[in-house]
């Protein structure tokens, strides 16, 4: 495929995914409240009802576009990405509807989402590290693949706490991944990564403050799992780890402070407090989980928009470090 065809395919892929997610989300924003499928927005006075879950719009558009790209390229790695996304999104959809009460069930089930990568053998057990290149991890790498999808998709799920945080975060975080895939170069996976950014961006229009729809676990798990699958099959694992550091550190800090797996809806002590002027403040209760939002708010109360803006700044910083990692890995 020559360069002009590649640019055309990438552009069409972006435009089609963006339009599909936009239209489907718009339809969900209108239909879900009529069916009573709404949840309270806890970070606003009066707790307004917001349509939920918007994940099916993300999931459907991502899977449609990835399937078309698989038919164009015939690359099993793209099929793996689609399958990982379907399985993780479906687990999220079940959780949205049935609610897994034990915190370990969801990460446990998400191991299933890793299987397409292993069964289709679309991984390479020579991950590429900055400075010293690829290393052979023939035994441990498949085990890391099994763990990676649950860890990354749960990390993205845990950052989905404020209006627009998840969708905006995914847009920023995917940019260095596409940059690394372009530089490697791995054009098939680079084009396959574009729907992730397009879908997140289209969803962000409805998800930003004040949210008209929440993605739910179906959206957050699908986005996280797809990000992870792209990183593994595209062999840009280290760049992906650096890019997604704010989410990884957020989930790590939560798990280490509550000492175990627990559903966020089951956390007894809230990490933040809603003030009468609608600003958010950090809880000073020592038993409150040390979330990223609480750590941002420790400096003083902020509006929800300001907290989300701070999360985006951290994501941009991580994305910058991921770009440096890319340059060190493939240009030095």
């Amino acid at each position: 495929m020559n360069q002009s065809d590649l640019i055309l395919l990438a552009s069409v892929s972006f435009a089609f995914t963006f339009s599909l997610t936009y239209l489907l989300t718009l339809a969900l924003v209108k239909t879900l409240p009529k069916k009573g499928s709404v949840v309270e927005d806890h970070h606003k006075q009066g707790k307004p009802k917001v349509a939920w879950p918007g994940g099916p719009a993300i999931l459907f558009s991502l899977v449609i576009v990835e399937s078309i790209l698989y038919l164009i390229y015939g690359d099993l790695r793209i099929l793996s990405i689609a399958l990982v996304t379907i399985i993780a999104g479906s687990i999220g959809l079940i959780d949205d509807r049935m609610k897994f009460n034990r915190g370990i069930i969801k990460p446990g089930l998400l191991i299933l989402a890793s299987l397409p990568i292993l069964l289709l053998r679309t991984y390479n057990f020579h991950p590429i590290f900055p400075i010293f290149g690829s290393v052979r991890l023939s035994i441990i790498y498949p085990l890391l693949v099994l763990l990676a999808v649950p860890i990354v998709s749960n990390a993205t799920n845990m950052i989905d706490v404020l209006n627009g945080a998840l969708s905006g975060f995914m847009v920023i975080t995917t940019i260095p991944l596409i940059f690394a895939l372009a530089l490697r170069p791995d054009h098939a996976i680079m084009v396959a990564a574009i729907p992730l950014i397009a879908s997140s961006l289209a969803f962000y229009i409805f998800h930003k403050h004040p949210s008209k729809i929440f993605p739910g676990d179906s959206g957050s798990l699908a986005l996280g799992a797809m990000f992870c699958a792209i990183a593994i099959v595209g062999r840009v694992e280290i760049v992906a780890i650096i890019a997604i550091l704010p989410a990884i550190l957020n989930s790590f800090f939560i798990l280490s402070s509550i000492k175990g797996f627990i559903e966020h809806r089951n956390i007894k002590t809230r990490p933040t407090i809603l003030l009468p002027d609608s600003r958010l403040a950090a809880s000073e209760n020592p038993s409150a989980p040390a979330t990223l939002v609480r750590m941002i708010l420790i400096g003083g109360p902020l509006s929800e928009r300001e907290v989300v803006s701070d999360i985006f700044k951290l994501s941009a910083f991580s994305a910058f470090l991921a770009v440096i990692t890319t340059l060190v890995t493939w240009c030095v």
Partner: peptide, 13 residues
């Protein structure tokens, strides 16, 4: 985040 990034480099080295 900066420290975590440096530690990933240092640790892998």
């Amino acid at each position: 985040i900066g420290v975590a990034w440096l530690l990933v480099f240092l640790g892998s080295y």
